[in-house]
Simulated scan of single mutants.
Amino acid sequence: MLPKRLVLGTGISTGSPTDFVTTILDQGAARTSAYVCFANVHMLVEAHRDPSFQQVLEEASLVTPDGTPVAAAVGWFHKQPQERVAGMDLVPVLLLEAARRNQSVYFYGTTPEVLQAIVARARRELPTLRIVGTHSPPFRPLTPEEDAADVAAINAADPDLLFVALGCPRQERWMANHRSQIKACMLGVGQAFLVYAGLEQRLPPWARRMGLEWTYRLWLEPRRLWRRYLVTNSHFLYLMTRSTLARLGGRG
């Protein structure tokens, strides 16, 4: 398992993107019922505010530094350079490697239209990829019967990798709640579904390296995301400053 380093109380897994891909595929092949969280600023702030969500991240097999600020914080606090390991970047690589290894995948979440676009691209670019199922659950809490039916369907399909897109923090809580029930490596990739489906564009690589993707998404969905990005990002900077001062003072 990849080592974790604490950032604002959350353990962030460290290693190269290749290390993460190999570890995820190995866990999928082992059917260990593991789950992977892709941590950005919003997720770390939510974990800092909510002990139950903090526990969800602590129990994850891997917590990748999805956001540029999170990767930079690992380097800042632990003097250890760390690349960003974003879900949007890992999804196409994982699908490619799964096809090469003859490992199977299942897509759970989002809408039927997005799932259809994902499958169409995967079948076009990776004709040997074993897609064993897709399902778009309702955008509401499931009844116990509905949840049991979804779990049964996933296990019957027997995927190595289960890609989950229910939105944060719902998808992370869903994976944690189903860790002992679903025998696959679950990945909470959220927005990566839209990007892979070709329904949302990404900024150029230079802008991603500067950590500007949040500004682009804010521009796309200002009414929904303004609070998450402006208020949450400000709170993240406050927590980083407080933690840094505490360390300098010998208290952290």
Results as ranks from 00 to 15, higher is better:
Q116L: 11
A86D: 09
H48F: 15
T111R: 12
P69N: 05
A73I: 05
S52T: 15
V63Y: 00
N102M: 03
L94E: 01
L142M: 15
V132D: 03
M43N: 12
L129N: 07
T111W: 08
E58F: 00
D66A: 07
R130H: 12
E97A: 11
E146S: 06
A149P: 00
Y106R: 05
L44W: 06
F139N: 09
R140V: 02
L142A: 11
Y108V: 08
F77A: 04
P51S: 09
A120W: 05
E46Q: 13
S104R: 13
E83T: 13
P112T: 08
A149C: 00
V74W: 10
F77D: 02
V93H: 06
P51W: 09
V132C: 10
P65T: 08
V56L: 08
Q55H: 12
T128C: 01
V74T: 04
A156R: 13
F139Y: 14
H42T: 03
R101W: 14
Q116W: 04
R121S: 02
A153Y: 06
E83V: 04
A73F: 09
G109E: 10
A72C: 01
L95W: 09
F107G: 05
R49G: 08
Q103M: 03
P138L: 11
D66S: 07
E97M: 06
E59V: 08
E145Q: 14
L115K: 03
R121Q: 10
E145D: 14
A152C: 01
A71L: 05
L94T: 01
V70F: 02
T143K: 11
R121M: 06
R101G: 09
A71N: 04
W76K: 14
A122R: 14
I154K: 08
F77Y: 15
T128I: 00
P112L: 07
V70Q: 07
I131Y: 00
P65R: 03
D147Q: 15
R49H: 15
V132I: 04
D66Y: 10
F53S: 12
A148T: 08
T111N: 02
G75Y: 08
P112S: 09
D150I: 14
E125P: 10
P81H: 03
I131S: 06
A86Q: 08
A72E: 12
L96E: 15
V63Q: 01
N102H: 14
A71H: 05
L95M: 15
L126W: 10
D150V: 13
L57S: 07
V114R: 02
G133C: 08
T128G: 01
T111M: 09
T111G: 02
N102K: 14
A73H: 08
A47V: 07
S61P: 00
G67R: 05
R101Y: 14
E97N: 11
L115V: 04
H78Q: 08
L126Y: 13
H42W: 00
Y108F: 15
P51A: 12
L94A: 02
V119W: 14
R130I: 04
A149Q: 12
Y106N: 04
A148L: 06
V74R: 03
A98K: 12
R101Q: 15
V105P: 07
Q103I: 07
T134R: 01
F139R: 07
V63A: 01
R123M: 11
H48T: 09
P138Y: 00
F53T: 10
T128Y: 01
A153R: 15
V93S: 10
A72L: 13
V70K: 05
E125G: 09
E58I: 01
